[in-house]
């Protein structure tokens, strides 16, 4: 295994473009090292991107949007005094991944590029409308988070391409987001179901909404029908039931060691309601 620690994304991209065999980028390493140690994936080329300037930065831009470096860790996101005020759902979703120790290393970008449908931060990012900047041999492009995963362990990134920044939109007024997942223990598990909700209110009425589901299909889903079920409502019981029904209907899960089809389908609806209530309360400025 060759190990490189380039000083720029252009250099990293060139290394990857010219490499043969399996290439992996190393940010927090919490997936790459597990796969390496268990002989699942032994990269021929490992490109550590943490020596690139600015990769740990968390920056609020003039328009209120956020740019996160690709090696900013979950712990750094949680400790940031303002990011969590704007996007509590995104920060909490990231914070749910693994232990305190894992938080010291794990990154949004790594969680996304691992391509797991159960990745906790991804539904939250999808709901929040997060995009990523992708640097490749032909320059940079911007992609929506929901367009990155293409299947379990697979991404839309081409050879030589890597994510170079995470862009979170401006929170704006009267908005709130939330993420909940179901795990059998209280910590340390992979999500059996995950739900991200981001919405905006006009008075008591929901005027914008994005609802995403994790661990219930080969990729994280952005579910239009869930959004439709609550837009124009005050999130009353009828709207919540419609949301739950839409969430369950969108599921296309598998039976595996972590949960059954029936369980995931049912709990997706339950969690969709619970998550939407938190996002709604946050949009109203209530503590939740």
């Amino acid at each position: 295994m060759d190990y490189h620690s380039p000083a720029s994304f252009v250099e990293a991209s060139a290394l990857a473009a010219n490499a043969t065999g399996i290439t992996r980028f190393l940010a927090g390493g919490t997936d790459v090292l597990v796969q390496l140690r268990s002989d699942l994936v032994t990269p021929d080329t490992l490109i550590d991107i943490k020596k690139i300037n600015g990769v740990r930065d968390i920056t609020r831009n003039a328009d209120g949007s956020w740019t996160l470096g690709v090696a900013a860790t979950g712990a750094e996101m949680s400790e940031h005094p303002e990011l969590g005020r704007d996007w509590p759902g995104v920060v909490e979703a990231m914070d749910l991944i693994g232990s305190t120790q894992v938080q010291g290393r794990a990154t949004l970008t790594g969680n996304l590029c691992n391509g797991s449908p159960a990745a906790d931060s991804v539904p939250a990012m999808v709901a929040a409308g997060v995009t990523v900047t992708v640097t490749g041999p032909d320059g940079a492009r911007e992609l929506a988070v929901e367009d990155i995963p293409t299947g379990p362990g697979k991404t839309a990134l081409a050879k030589g391409e890597l994510i170079s920044a995470v862009n979170i939109p401006a929170r704006g007024a009267n908005g709130g987001d939330a993420y909940l997942r179901f795990i059998p223990r209280t910590e340390m598990d992979i999500a059996v179901v995950g739900v991200g909700v981001n919405l905006r209110l006009d008075g008591d009425k929901i005027i914008e909404a994005r609802v995403s589901l994790g661990a219930v299909a080969p990729t994280v889903l952005l579910v239009e029908d869930c959004a439709k079920a609550i837009i124009g409502t005050t999130l009353d019981e009828v709207a919540l039931d419609a949301l739950a029904t839409a969430a369950s209907a969108a599921c296309n899960p598998i039976d595996d060691k972590r949960g059954t089809i029936e369980f995931r389908t049912e709990v997706a609806g339950v969690l969709a309601k619970r998550t939407a209530k938190i996002a709604y309360a946050r949009a109203k400025g209530e503590h939740a």
């Binding site: 190990y3 190393l26 927090g28 390493g29 919490t30 090292l33 597990v34 140690r37 268990s38 550590d48 943490k50 860790t73 712990a75 693994g98 232990s99 305190t100 120790q101 894992v102 010291g104 290393r105 340390m188």
Partner: peptide, 27 residues
């Protein structure tokens, strides 16, 4: 465990708590 799930290998790096099994020696 070697997979970051048990914490027996906990150390701090630059004051940050991590699993030393999830970090390469070169890092």
């Amino acid at each position: 465990c070697g997979t970051g799930d048990c914490g027996a290998c906990s150390v701090t790096v630059e004051g940050r708590l991590v699993c030393s099994c999830l970090m390469l020696g070169v890092e």
